[in-house]
Structures are given as C-alpha cells and as structure tokens.
C-alpha cells in the first residue's frame, strides 16, 4: 500500500477535527459552568470555585442518586448477561439452525424499539388496574397491584424493561459467538459423555471470556443512558427511589430550580468517573 498517499489525511483530518470540536466544546463548557452559580433564569453569574462540588457531598439527594445509579448499573448489567448467556446457550443447544435464525430476528426487536416505546408498552402492561402483567394478581386477590408506585419494586420494574431490551439482543450475539467457536473441543467432550451444561460451563464460556467481558462493558456504558426509560416510566419516583445521577442533574437544571451550574457539576462528576473507569477497563480488556 502506498504510504505516501494524501488519502489518510484528507479522509481523517476534517472528520476528526469536527468530532473533536463537537465533543470537546460542550465538555469544556460544562466544566467551566460547573464552577459558576449560573441559573437558567438570569444571564449574570459568578465564578464560585469548587463550591458546587463541595456542596454535592452534603446533598442527600445527590448521594441517594449516586447509590441508585450504582444499583442500576449492577442490576442491569448482571441481569442482561445472565439472560443473554442462558438464552444464547439454550438457542445453541435446542434450536435447529433454521429456527435459530428466526429466533435471532425476533430477539433483535426489543433493542431496536425506541426506549420511549418500550417504556410505554411496559408501563401499560404494569398498570395497576388494567395491566396485562398485573392481571393474574388482580384475578386471584381482587386487589390492584401497583409495582411502579412502590419504592422497593419500582427500580426493579424499570430494570426489567432495560434487561428485556438488551438481554435478548446480547443472546443473539452470544449464539453467534458460540457458532464461531471451533467445533472440535465441543465434539470431543460430547464423545466423553459430558452433559450440555458441563460443556458450556467448563469449555465454551471460558473460551468466550474476552468477548463476554467486552459485552458486559458495552452494556455498562449503555446502562448509563437510562434517562429516557426512567423519565417515561417513573420520573425518578416514587419520591426519589429511582432517581439516577442524570435524572437528578436534569431535575436540578430544568425542572425544579434551574441551577444549571450545579447541574453541570453533577454532569462533570459523572463524566470524569465514567471516562476514567471505562478508559482503564477498555484498555485493559483490549490489550
């Protein structure tokens, strides 16, 4: 290949420059806003140093939302991976190649649905009086069941919808990964009368360790974009039991007080945490 060609510069420089401008400008702007007491309602503002950041640590609601965010990450990532591995293995073992193709198409649907739609579909399905999911409970006990209004179950219901969207999608990827493995070790262990679960537990899953970790990481990143789901289903409620960091930043900046300086400091906190964590993990995984 001709290394002296101008092509890489012509093809890369404008694109990367534009991406850098589009990504760095708002990031730096958020950083500078986080040091101000800027509000939506007045054009004047002062630089107040680290005051916003100091205030965060005595803000109960902020600490609560950080805990909710961590819970959300843990529940959705583990839930998605368990469903995906289980269903992927099941498809690999029990479905003929033709049936597998059909299942793969079906299981792609939830992740393609707009999250706003997925949220509505399930919000109505969980409706305390008319929902189809709560129908068996109503039929048996005669009482309505409002899972989204209960602080202990609300987060689980929203997480369930998230897992519904991503778990099936990852199952499709895992079945393709299983198909791409060399068949010899699996056949050898079959000849030795290994049970299917043993084959997968001891052979195929360990062989897929690296891609599975990458998948979990991708899910962890995507789980940070939980805002739309939570916004439509619970708005952070009941109370603040499903209020994640981005939901709290949004309500501080736009719904309650218009304190966009303070909201920016929450956003910057989130930004630094995620960039540092994911850069370290990603570089470690893809060494």
């Amino acid at each position: 290949m001709n290394r002296q060609s101008s092509l890489p510069f012509v093809f890369l420089v404008p694109t990367i420059a534009l991406l850098a401008i589009l990504a760095l400008t708002p990031t730096l702007y958020a950083l500078s806003m986080s040091f101000t007491d800027r509000s939506l309602f007045s054009p004047d503002f002062n630089y107040i140093g680290f005051e916003n950041y100091l205030q965060l640590w005595s803000d109960r609601r902020f600490l609560n939302s950080a805990v909710v965010s961590v819970k959300w990450e843990v529940i959705t990532v583990t839930g998605t991976m368990i469903l995906a591995v289980g269903l992927g293995v099941l498809m690999f073992e029990c479905a003929s190649p033709r049936a597998r193709n059909i299942y793969c198409l079906i299981f792609l649907i939830p992740v393609l649905l707009p999250r706003v739609c997925a949220a509505f579909v399930w919000k109505f399905a969980f409706h305390p009086l008319y929902g189809i999911v709560t129908y068996p409970y109503r039929a048996i006990t005669g009482k309505p069941l409002d899972l989204l209004a209960d602080p202990t179950s609300a987060l689980m219901v929203v997480a369930f919808v998230d897992i519904w969207q991503w778990g099936f999608f990852f199952a499709v990827i895992i079945v393709k990964l299983l198909e791409s493995l060399p068949p010899q070790p699996i056949e050898a262990s079959r000849l030795d009368y290994a049970r299917p679960w043993q084959i997968h537990f001891y052979i195929t899953i360990p062989m897929l360790r690296a891609p599975l970790i990458s998948l979990a990481l991708v899910k962890a990143i995507e789980s940070l974009r939980s805002f739309d789901l939570i916004y439509v289903m619970t708005r952070g409620g009941p109370g603040i039991s499903t209020e994640t960091l981005d939901m709290y930043a949004f309500s501080q900046g736009f719904i309650e007080s218009g304190k966009i300086g303070y909201a920016s400091s929450i956003a910057v906190f989130m930004l630094i945490l995620t960039i540092v964590a994911f850069t370290i993990i990603w570089k470690k995984v893809n060494k």
Binding site: A20, T25, T27, G253, M270, T274
Partner: peptide
C-alpha cells in the same frame, strides 16, 4: 488512537453534553 477516541465519544454521558449544548 483515533479509533479509540471515536469509541470514547460513546462514553460521554448525554446529560454532560446536553446542558452545555443547550446554553451554546
């Protein structure tokens, strides 16, 4: 490095760019 930079854009929490974009 460019490839990693492009990927890392996906790490940006939307709320962190939404607020400044609005002001901009």
């Amino acid at each position: 490095e460019i490839q990693f930079f492009v990927l890392s854009l996906r790490f940006l929490p939307p709320v962190a760019i939404a607020i400044p974009f609005m002001v901009i």
